[in-house]
Nucleic acid binder design. Structure first.
Lengths: 176, 176
DNA sequence: GATTTCGCTTGCAATTTGCAATTGATATGG
DNA sequence: CCATATCAATTGCAAATTGCAAGCGAAATC
């Protein structure tokens, strides 16, 4: 059943599982990859420099490596700016934006089950309007809208969270 | 904003992000943890030995380490069998079963976007009946039902997949 | 031309993972 | 009771990956 063809990037033989979860984790089963996707998808980040500043302290060699891997897997693309060819803009592909439900569920689980900076009202609102959130993520991607998903998604309806004294910056979803 | 209190388990200072995605990845941001959760949740596995046989070739030291971490985070519990105290049974907690949507979305993404052993019809059926799948996962957890989710969830409706020549074993969702 | 900026790359140390043998506790069989 | 088997680890060591911080090369600016 499990062949010994090995896992990509692993010189040592390891059974190559055909389970979808396992195959997904071959791509994202590390600390950093989904954080990069979060930054692209939720915060509207595009550049190496922005990812570097996202708040978790990723090292440049790891960031460069992860960007390369994601690109190799067809999840992101990159393009130099016409006006300054040093500046590379990364963008999720369709395959990449299809990860929105994964990201959303991770966000919801983390917010509900761990101590985070996400205001509870926002979280339950997003859960309640799950399809609308996913549609908004896709719309922003299609329109290359680089503004952050939150608190914009809240449509200002929730306004500035005050019930827990949280500020928008605590959610780590702020624009560059 | 980001304090230098450090990330748990990391002696080196690293900004501690309050973003829910980041905090989730502090727990699951590795190759193995979500595979263990998959085995508990989907395949009905309970024992060290079963996890060892799940098909991805996890090493015993890594398995032991990941089980310990998941237990420390309140995601799983363990209990020795009364009749044979060497045998430990692991079980998801409520907090753990709340990861079902994450697992399901990972499974769906992987199945749709990568080459896997999951029959397409199963996948689209699960996606279509998302709430029912999640309810079934929770029911089985509550009733300590250790039978695998698939192909049972398909209710035998799809029967033995033949359209792609796949066998149930290719889905890696087989009982021990 | 000198300096700055951008996205890396590099050298080295620290940490984690992987392999395979071993261990300690528990159970079984003669 | 002792020898053997089973279970869930633990261990010693090698290989791989991550992390730190300096440095590099290309492009842009002054």
């Amino acid at each position: 059943m499990a062949s010994l063809s090995g896992v990509p990037g692993k010189p040592k033989s390891k059974p190559r599982s055909r389970c979808p979860v396992s195959i997904s984790l071959e791509i994202f089963g590390d600390r950093w990859s989904l954080l990069i996707i979060r930054d692209l998808m939720v915060r509207g980040f595009r550049t190496f420099r922005e990812f570097r500043g996202s708040g978790e302290g990723i090292s440049t060699n790891i960031l460069a490596d992860r960007l390369r891997r994601l690109e190799a897997r067809g999840i992101i693309t990159r393009e130099a700016e016409a006006r300054d060819r040093r500046k590379l803009n990364y963008r999720l592909t369709e395959k990449g934006i299809d990860l929105a439900p994964v990201l959303l569920e991770l966000l919801l689980w983390g917010a509900r089950r761990e101590e985070t900076g996400a205001p509870c009202a926002w979280i339950e609102d997003m859960a309640k309007h799950r399809e609308a959130v996913l549609a908004e993520v896709r719309r922003r991607w299609q329109e290359r809208d680089a503004t952050p998903l939150l608190p914009r998604f809240a449509g200002g309806r929730l306004g500035r969270p005050t019930q827990h004294g949280y500020r928008a910056t605590d959610v780590q979803l702020k624009a560059s």
